[in-house]
């Protein structure tokens, strides 16, 4: 036997590795001067967050994280490139000068997340994660949380219809 493998908290090790990846890539998102580099770092950061979800046995959430964010990011990048008019790509993600306003927002977010995590009652023995979490999520979504679920569905439909309406209007103007 190899004694060096005994007694190591592997989940803890993975947590620290993933956290380091998240923090470093999130900082690089902010500090990159090129918006495409920022976005690619953002992808890495999201995938590392999915890794943290996996260590917490939340596989469904992890896959949602990968699927939704990777897809959404592509669209974001395309919009970013099409909307930003700069000759030099290295000037697309500059710092802005809104020191007081930005600082206030950052402080508020820090305070809110800190307050929320302070209020949560962490118990020493969390309940066991069910073997098939998708089934439990589906049952909850269609029984206890059916109204929020339907409201979200309605909201998405409204967004889709609105987007189609706006796109059509522009086309009609261009023709006339």
């Amino acid at each position: 036997m190899l004694p060096m493998f005994d007694g190591i908290d592997w989940l803890g090790v993975f947590f620290y590795i993933l956290s380091a990846v998240i923090v470093v890539s999130a900082l690089l998102v902010v500090f990159s001067k090129n918006i495409v580099h920022s976005v690619l770092w953002l992808v890495i950061s999201f995938i590392a967050v999915a890794g943290i979800f996996i260590t917490l046995n939340a596989d469904f959430l992890a896959l949602i994280q990968v699927m939704v964010y990777a897809g959404a990011i592509c669209i974001m990048v395309v919009l970013g490139i099409m909307l930003i008019k700069r000759d030099d790509m290295n000037k697309t993600n500059m710092f802005n000068s809104q020191l007081y306003f930005g600082g206030a927002v950052a402080l508020m977010v820090t305070f809110l997340t800190g307050f929320a995590s302070y209020k949560i009652n962490y118990s020493g023995n969390p309940p066991m994660v069910p073997e098939n979490s998708v089934e439990s999520i589906a049952t909850l979504l269609l029984s206890k949380y059916v109204i929020p679920f339907e409201v979200v569905a309605l909201l998405l439909t409204v967004t889709l219809v609105g987007a189609i309406y706006i796109a059509r209007e522009v086309k009609a103007d261009a023709d006339s």
């Binding site: 992808v43 896959l63 949602i64 990968v66 699927m67 990777a70 897809g71 990011i73 592509c74 990048v77």
Partner: peptide, 9 residues
């Protein structure tokens, strides 16, 4: 599906 969507980017 989740992993497959990564190849787009």
């Amino acid at each position: 599906l989740a992993v497959g969507s990564l190849s787009t980017i």
